[in-house]
Amino acid sequence: MIMNTGIIAVEEERDKINEMSKKYIELYKKSLERDDKIDKISLISRWGIKIGAFVGHIKVAFSNKNWLRKNIDHGLITLSSKLSQWGIKRIANKQKENNQKEREEIQASFINDDGSIKEFLLIDDNLVTNQEITNQEDKTVALSI
């Protein structure tokens, strides 16, 4: 890594970068096909290339959750609050500061194929909706988007 006037420089293999660029474009094109839904979750910046960060965030946030991992590359899963492990840790710390049992709490929203948005709350790996705690079967259905 070279640090020069605040710009980070890393040396990468050309093949690796070309591969990443190709996949990035695929993600971008996929996002354009679902433009109406993308608007709702602000995936696209003026350059139209925020989706990579979006996917990355999810990967970071849910790296421990195998049940979600299969959906990560869907391209239309987003979270309504903080997404990274950093965010998770911060939430957990906040709980601890309040003298409550430390727990991992994540808010998430998912875009269904019909364009509707489902919102969830995840507490210590348990999926909670606004109304009820879902069982494993419900969880699978809910995430099969």
Binding site: M20, Y24, K50, G52, A53, G56, S84, R90
Partner: peptide, 14 residues
């Protein structure tokens, strides 16, 4: 030449 862009919400920066 842009390869990609990402955003860090915690820093509110892209």
């Amino acid at each position: 030449n842009i390869i990609m862009q990402f955003r860090i919400e915690e820093l509110n920066k892209q």
